[in-house]
């Protein structure tokens, strides 16, 4: 019970920290997602030369719906980053977590939950705006709930990856390279810019053995009311989260042996 209070308090502090620097939060988290969405809308609007044109089975409104849902998925699941985590290790701030009764993993996971709840509210607000602008049409209530639940699971996987890249600060001078690398791969291979069904058949075959389509393409399809891919996505993401958990535990134990903090 006392540990539960610590979790709640850390989540509350996380909310205060995010809302204290609102402009920064907007420029760092929401701004990039909106600009990315604007670029994709501009690109596909230029690609479709007339209203009735179909490209790979998608009409322009369907493609715009796809990218509107992509915006929701990005806001909900792919916004957290491990900047603070890597810096805690690099600058030796991690030492305090070794003596606190609330450990490093607990602190960063609580911060993630705090961040994720704010992102959820922003995603709902954005979704309402998109609905009013007729840029998305909602699926059935049950499908919507399934899609939200699945996207939250993707968010946990995203955090696991960010946590791993942050832990690499035990060995690396800079961890942003790993984060950017992952972000670039996800943007390209998960269907963020171009739906996976546009990829050549051989690439689609290879991609189904990776978690990438499950990160953007599957949740977008779920939001659009298409349930195929749900089971495979669920299995892929769950296995990936469990695998990341074991990898993180291993890296943490190895990294801790290397950790030295000066000036304490």
């Amino acid at each position: 019970m006392s540990n539960f209070k610590k979790w709640l308090e850390t989540i509350r502090i996380g909310w205060s920290m995010v809302t204290a620097y609102r402009l920064n939060f907007f420029l760092l988290i929401i701004g990039p997602a909106l600009v990315f969405y604007f670029i994709k809308v501009s690109l596909w609007s230029a690609v479709y030369t007339d209203k009735d044109m179909l490209i790979n089975g998608y009409s322009l409104p369907q493609m715009l719906h796809y990218h509107a849902w992509a915006l929701i998925v990005v806001l909900m699941a792919q916004s957290s980053n491990g900047v603070n985590l890597g810096e805690d290790i690099r600058f030796g701030r991690m030492s305090k977590y070794l003596i606190y009764p609330f450990n490093f993993w607990e602190f960063h996971t609580a911060s993630f939950i705090s961040f994720q709840t704010i992102q959820f509210v922003i995603a709902i607000f954005t979704l309402a705006l998109l609905c009013f602008s007729d840029l998305v049409s909602l699926p059935s209530f049950s499908n919507l709930m399934i899609a939200f639940a699945y996207t939250s699971l993707v968010g946990i996987f995203w955090f696991s990856v960010q946590y791993t890249t942050g832990l690499l600060a035990f060995w690396l001078e800079e961890t942003w390279t790993m984060r950017v690398m992952f972000q670039l791969l996800v943007n390209f291979l998960s269907g963020s810019i171009i739906p996976i069904s546009f990829f050549p058949a051989w690439a689609q075959n290879y991609l189904q053995y990776t978690p990438f389509p499950s990160l953007t393409y599957t949740p977008i399809n779920l939001f659009m009311g298409q349930m195929q891919g749900l089971h495979q996505g669920l299995i892929t993401i769950t296995i990936s989260i469990v695998a990341m958990f074991f990898i993180n535990t291993y890296i943490w134990r190895r990294g801790l042996r290397l950790f030295t903090a000066a000036g304490m």
Partner: peptide, 8 residues
């Protein structure tokens, strides 16, 4: 705070 500007 310059990180936001860098993101612009």
């Amino acid at each position: 705070e310059g990180v936001g500007i860098n993101f612009i």
